[in-house]
């Protein structure tokens, strides 16, 4: 699986959004667009990403822009993996 597919799967299970996850594209907005993505879900999402990709996410690494779109989230993961 690619990073994009892995992140899609994490979104699907963490937010429990079922098949809606399949329609998400790179420019699909996340924050403000997916009602399930409240603060608790954001925290769960970061934790799940950290554990799945075995990366360390620091507080300073993330901001609202990270969750702006599905593409920005995937980009963030790719950058962390490249570190």
């Amino acid at each position: 699986m690619t990073v994009i597919e892995d992140v899609r799967e994490i979104l699907k299970t963490t937010l429990q959004i079922g098949e809606r996850a399949d329609d998400i594209e790179a420019d699909t907005p996340l924050l403000g667009n997916i009602p399930e993505l409240d603060s608790m879900a954001v925290a769960m999402l970061i934790t799940a990403i950290e554990e799945h990709f075995d990366i360390f996410v620091d507080d300073d690494d993330i901001s609202a822009e990270t969750f702006e779109t599905f593409g920005s989230l995937c980009e963030f993961v790719e950058e962390k993996l490249a570190e």
Binding site: L31, L37, A41, V42, A64
Partner: peptide, 18 residues
């Protein structure tokens, strides 16, 4: 008690969206 510090950050991020 939260698993990590992300919850404080997540509150901040989601508040920005309103």
């Amino acid at each position: 008690i939260y698993r990590n510090n992300f919850i404080a950050l997540a509150h901040k991020i989601t508040k920005l969206i309103g």
